[in-house]
Write a protein that binds this DNA or RNA. Structure first.
Length: 264
DNA sequence: TTTCATGTTCAGCA
DNA sequence: GTGCTGAACATGAA
């Protein structure tokens, strides 16, 4: 479930359940999620350490280890952390498990598209991956500069983690819906007002999702996200929502609510 | 059985 | 370098 709001929820969950608990053992149930990492170094850094703090940049999480270094967690499409106490039954699809004296923290990921790694410092990791500023930190000025200069569909640009980090397929649809912007619109065709609207909507939507605990049912009725499905109707005008492939993903939008004519 | 999926990355091409 | 398309990754759910 991981775009920025979900990952922020994961961060708080880990802070609530797993800080300052020494890791007795790291169980790697499936090596796929640590592919690319130095396995011995990972185990060496983790075992005997406790997690001191958690940071987030976009969809990426960093766990500070007391013996030095930071764990990098990315949840892919189906990853999530699950804290377990002794009496809890282990869920399916546990790929890596950090075992404490009592209880554990599991990295659960059915599709195994998530990744766990190790880095000396979050800043270095962010630089290496060329991650853009976090979607909740980017200023209007930075936002306008970045997207005013980007070519191609605005939805694809919003999902580009190099430009701004944290927005994926679902939230990009919501942001554009709230601003009545066609997801296929060329970013360069957008006005200053569009830029301001997207920047504001981005912050509003992400913060709203965080505040409802990423439970879409608790979002305002005006949100497209609540009933995002083929055959559903627009929460604003009631007409049938359309889909289109943009940036390799399925975009949902209401063609009747758009501010401007379709571009095709 | 087939298709789609809240993500990232890479190859090939313009 | 930028952008687009398609595929790969690996699996569950509809």
């Amino acid at each position: 479930m991981p775009e920025l709001p979900e990952v922020e929820a994961f961060k708080r969950y880990i802070e609530r359940t797993s800080l300052e608990r020494p890791v007795a053992r790291m169980e790697i149930r499936n090596g796929v999620v640590i592919r690319g990492a130095d396995r011995p170094a990972l185990i060496e850094a983790v075992e005997g350490s406790e997690v001191l703090s958690v940071r987030r940049r976009g969809k990426q999480l960093f766990l500070e280890l007391s013996r030095g270094g930071w764990l990098t967690w990315h949840f892919g499409m189906t990853g999530r952390p699950v804290a377990l106490e002794r009496w809890d039954e282990e869920p399916r699809f546990v790929r890596v498990k950090f075992v404490f004296e009592h209880g554990s923290l599991a990295f659960v990921d059915p599709r195994m598209l998530g990744r766990i790694g190790l880095t000396a410092r979050p800043e270095r990791f962010i630089e290496e991956r060329r991650l853009g500023p976090d979607a909740l930190d980017i200023t209007l000025e930075e936002f306008t500069t970045t997207f005013g200069a980007s070519k191609g569909a605005i939805k694809a640009a919003l999902m580009d983690q190099h430009k701004v980090a944290g927005i994926g397929n679902l939230y990009s649809d919501e942001i554009l819906f709230q601003c009545r912007i066609d997801p296929r619109a060329d970013a360069r065709s957008l006005s200053e007002e569009d830029m301001r609207c997207m920047h504001r909507a981005m912050r509003r939507v992400l913060n709203m999702a965080i505040s409802v605990g990423t439970d879409f049912e608790r979002l305002p009725r005006s949100y497209l996200l609540r009933g995002r499905a083929v055959g559903s109707s627009c929460p604003r005008c009631g007409s049938l929502v359309s889909t289109a492939t943009v940036g390799g993903r399925t975009a949902f939008f209401c063609p009747f609510c758009l501010d401007r004519k379709s571009f095709f």
